[in-house]
């Protein structure tokens, strides 16, 4: 491993890392939005709406993410909608992870004691207000650790965007390795850079989990 190689590769990989972070944040945002929508739809008293959400979630969970990416990148343009590979990767990952986010949010929402919801009703609150003022603020706290785990998974799976030509970090590594044959140096660097992004997230999640389990114990004393 020559330092000269490392110095030469680093800026290229760093550019890829920026794209990786962009995809991760974009997909995280989209999956949060869609996941919340799906979780709320699933709780709808109107059966067709909850059935639609359940079907969507099951289909998404039953498909490999890479197939979803191919589908969005290669099939959607045939319908006349132009998507760059970058956009397709965000949409693909965002939709794929919305199913898991819906599950995170659903668990958070259902953890709220029904007595609180009745108390809210008894002071005249309507269901949308109960959601906003009573359920969601607490559900968000409960859903935060699994949410962080999902963020880590999206970060890692953003590497799948390399398969649809997005020049994120993994693909940048592939390109360098293919032209220099410095496989060990390149992929070690790529691995370390993923860890540099993911480990802080993982530690953050662990801290959150410890914090919440402690404060919940405190609540029962």
């Amino acid at each position: 491993m020559a330092y000269a190689d490392i110095a030469a590769f680093f800026p290229i990989l760093l550019k890829g890392a920026v794209v990786t972070v962009q995809i991760t944040l974009g997909a995280l945002l989209l999956s949060t939005f869609l996941g919340l929508l799906l979780a709320l739809m699933k709780r709808s008293p109107f059966a067709p709406i909850s059935a639609l959400a359940s079907t969507f979630i099951n289909v998404i969970r039953g498909l490999p993410i890479i197939v979803q990416l191919f589908y969005i990148y290669f099939v959607i343009p045939e319908l006349g909608i132009d998507l760059s590979a970058f956009q397709a990767s965000i949409i693909g990952l965002g939709i794929a992870y919305s199913a898991y986010q819906a599950e995170n949010f659903r668990a958070g929402i259902e953890a709220i004691d029904s007595g609180q919801i009745e108390a809210a009703k008894s002071i005249g609150m309507k269901s949308a207000l109960i959601m906003r003022r009573v359920v969601l603020p607490q559900a968000v706290r409960i859903a935060l650790p699994p949410y962080g785990n999902t963020a880590v998974m999206i970060l890692k799976d953003s590497s799948l965007a390399s398969t649809i030509t997005v020049a994120e970090m993994t693909r940048a590594g592939q390109l360098i390795a293919a032209s220099t044959f410095q496989n060990t140096t390149v992929y070690t660097m790529v691995a370390l850079m993923y860890l540099a992004l993911s480990l802080p997230l993982i530690f953050g999640v662990n801290r959150l989990e410890r914090f919440f389990s402690k404060s919940r114990q405190g609540a029962n004393q």
Binding site: D113, G115, Q116, E118, A119, A120, S122, V134, P137, Q138, R141, A219
Partner: peptide, 11 residues
């Protein structure tokens, strides 16, 4: 209404 288990909003 006042409930047996209080049902205050803990947050």
């Amino acid at each position: 209404m006042v409930f047996q288990r209080f049902n205050l909003f803990p947050h």
